[in-house]
Simulated assay, not measured.
Amino acid sequence: MTSSDRTLARDIDAACRLTGTFTLRSGQAASEYFDKYLFETDPALLARVARQMVPLVPERADLLGGLELGGVPIVTVLSGLTGTGALFVRKQAKAYGTSKLAEGPPVEGRRVVLIEDVITTGGAVRDATRALRAAGAVVDTVVCAIDRSAAGSTPLADIGLEVRAVLTKTELDAERTG
């Protein structure tokens, strides 16, 4: 864990890991589910996660882009802690009003660090990266609360994106067995 908060993995796991019968996004059935919104809606846990993200944000960041929906509460707190401006990045540009993909200041020519709650395969991050790059942003880093990708994998290397995580699946799983 990159964090100096040694109890964070235990507390996140205790708050968010649910047991029962669940249908995953992939359509598969599972007996466990990780409900990330349970830490994002808990002000104390959210603040602890955001504090641990601060040293993971590259110094050269111009803007922090929180991905809809889970990255938005995190980026709001993190922006306040770092003094770096925030963007709220939609899954797709809205079809009315300003028709923006990213709500906030212009991104063209600016270094945007993406902020996400949980990364498993990185699909949403990949889509946001491509869209922001097409709008002229420089995107090379994503900071996430939890990297649930397989140990040793780099799910976003194919698009040149570095993943920096507060916690990993391995660390959370160790709380179940430890």
Results as ranks from 00 to 15, higher is better:
2 T>P: 11
3 S>C: 13
4 S>M: 11
5 D>H: 08
6 R>E: 13
8 L>Q: 05
11 D>I: 03
13 D>L: 13
16 C>P: 03
16 C>D: 04
16 C>F: 03
17 R>Q: 08
19 T>V: 13
19 T>I: 09
23 T>K: 11
25 R>M: 11
27 G>P: 12
30 A>Y: 02
31 S>H: 12
31 S>E: 13
34 F>T: 03
40 E>A: 02
47 A>G: 12
50 A>L: 10
54 V>G: 05
57 V>Q: 05
58 P>E: 10
58 P>Q: 11
59 E>L: 10
63 L>F: 02
71 G>W: 00
72 V>K: 05
74 I>P: 00
75 V>I: 07
77 V>M: 06
77 V>T: 09
83 G>E: 02
84 T>E: 01
86 A>F: 06
90 R>W: 06
92 Q>Y: 12
93 A>E: 12
98 T>F: 07
98 T>I: 08
102 A>C: 03
105 P>Q: 14
106 P>F: 04
108 E>D: 15
113 V>W: 01
114 L>K: 02
114 L>D: 00
115 I>V: 15
118 V>N: 03
119 I>S: 01
120 T>V: 01
126 R>V: 08
127 D>K: 15
129 T>P: 04
129 T>K: 00
131 A>P: 02
133 R>S: 05
133 R>I: 06
138 V>I: 13
139 V>D: 01
146 I>W: 01
148 R>F: 02
150 A>W: 12
157 A>K: 10
158 D>I: 07
170 T>W: 06
172 L>V: 07
174 A>Y: 01
177 T>A: 13
